[in-house]
């Protein structure tokens, strides 16, 4: 009966994952390998293709300053600067949507919603960037990443070519993702792993750690059993997956440092209010 409960938990979290996250790993890998009936993604590999592909990116509510300036004779460098900032803003909008999706997923974890509300906030504040970073992995390969719900493929070289510190933002995620993807987790494994990350009892400022650790232990048991069943030939996979949690924390620390640098160096930069809340006093 205990194993049945753990399987039922795995099934429940997988269903919630499919409900809340629009681009699954299965779909992303199909797009990346060209095995989909949909159109191939639009490739952004330089500033020109970024401008051409911009209509696909969800930034409609932001003023298109670059396009306005283009007609008034702004220099190429100024335009490039504005395009980079605009792209960064559209990434922020998508990130804020993704935080909302992760929140809904967290709420579906059995027992999460009856935790102290302050602790729910803390778990999300510290967990959400880790979750979003791990969810980028299925969208990436060594050459680039899918964005905009898989409609666009942006090359790693282009992201590296942006001016600092924008150029420093994605490279550590590529390095992490290429290694993480070698574990070959599928969406059902990912659902359990995300729940484990969210239910971390060592987040700073938690008021009542015990119930969180109890919930996490249950999900960990479910993950261990699920990985044994789903990947019978992959030795020590459970341990390897858990080891990734250490790398994830380093990844988030780096991300927060880059955002700090951006806030100092970019006068035009305006962080999304939800992301500001999450970043404030984080590490």
């Amino acid at each position: 009966p205990e194993a049945a409960d753990l399987r039922s938990l795995a099934k429940h979290l997988y269903e919630s994952y499919l409900k809340n996250f629009p681009l699954t790993k299965a779909k992303a890998r199909a797009i990346l390998s060209g095995k989909t009936n949909d159109n191939a993604p639009f490739v952004i590999h330089d500033m020109k293709s970024l401008l051409e592909g911009e209509q696909f990116i969800n930034c409609c509510h932001l003023p298109h300053q670059g396009q306005q300036r283009e007609s008034t004779g702004a220099t190429l460098t100024e335009l490039q600067r504005e395009v980079e900032l605009r792209f960064f803003h559209s990434c922020q909008s998508r990130s804020a949507e993704a935080v909302s999706e992760v929140t809904e997923f967290a709420k579906s974890i059995p027992g999460f919603s009856i935790l102290d509300l302050n602790d729910q906030v803390t778990l999300l504040k510290y967990g959400v960037i880790e979750v979003l970073s791990i969810m980028m992995a299925p969208l990436m390969n060594k050459d680039g990443t899918l964005i905009s719900y898989g409609q666009i493929f942006m090359t790693r070289e282009f992201l590296k070519s942006l001016r600092k510190p924008f150029s420093d933002m994605m490279e550590p995620k590529f390095e992490f993702s290429v290694k993480f993807n070698m574990l070959e987790l599928d969406d059902s494994d990912m659902a359990l792993f995300l729940a484990v990350i969210i239910l971390s009892g060592d987040r700073p400022g938690l008021l009542n750690v015990k119930p969180i650790e109890e919930l996490q232990e249950n999900v960990l048991h479910s993950l261990e059993l699920h990985l044994k069943t789903n990947h019978p030939d992959s030795l020590h996979l459970f341990a390897k997956v858990l080891q990734k949690m250490t790398d994830l924390r380093q990844l988030v620390t780096h991300h927060v440092q880059v955002i700090q640098l951006l806030k100092e160096s970019e006068v035009d930069l305006c962080l999304h209010p939800l992301l500001q809340e999450i970043m404030r006093d984080l590490y």
Binding site: S93, V121, L124, L274, E277
Partner: peptide, 21 residues
């Protein structure tokens, strides 16, 4: 803490996800 994280708090309290993101 929830006072300093009004949007996160609202996301947690609302039964559906769409908020003024």
């Amino acid at each position: 803490l929830k006072e300093k994280h009004k949007i996160l708090h609202r996301l947690l309290q609302n039964s559906t996800s769409p908020v003024d993101l």
